[in-house]
Amino acid sequence: MSRQIPRRLPAATWFGVVGALLLAGFAVFAGQHAAAARGWIDGPSWLLETVAALEDREPSIWVSVGGIAAALLGVWFLIAAFTPGRRTHLPVEGRCDLWVSPRAVEALAADAAERSPGVLHGRGDVQRRRLRVSALLAPGADAGVVAISEAVGERITGLADLELSVQAKEGGR
């Protein structure tokens, strides 16, 4: 069974909204010229004023700032156009179409670590295919990394195929 990966909306979706608003802005610009040229509205055509400004030797400071902003926005649009939406969940092997978010795996791992004897506080961190668990041990507690590792491994068995690493630090008295 081919499964479509759950993803966030790609950035291009939001830029599509901005693009639609920009097109609407161009439409207003063109429409204002048509209306002003036909005498349907009072006031000068914005397009003619823009063309008149082109005859200046140098652009005004605001036009320069606008031009640089347009170039930067253009680069941002191009990056967004080719960036895929980020994966939100990890696949779970099995018969059903089950997906689990990295934050959920982190929560389970942190809880499993905290329930190990001698652990004061646990934290999980999923980065790509690796789960890193940090544990704060009670001072003088007879707690080991192996026990924490086993507890976390047992808890997430069958859920996510992640490389597990545990770091334990003894808390101060």
């Binding site: 291009a12 253009g74 191009l78 967004a80 156009a81």
Partner: peptide, 18 residues
Amino acid sequence: IDRVGAALLGLVLLAAGA
């Protein structure tokens, strides 16, 4: 159309800025 539109608008804005 979002990707194509964003790419085209990006090129237009980049050209205008340049």
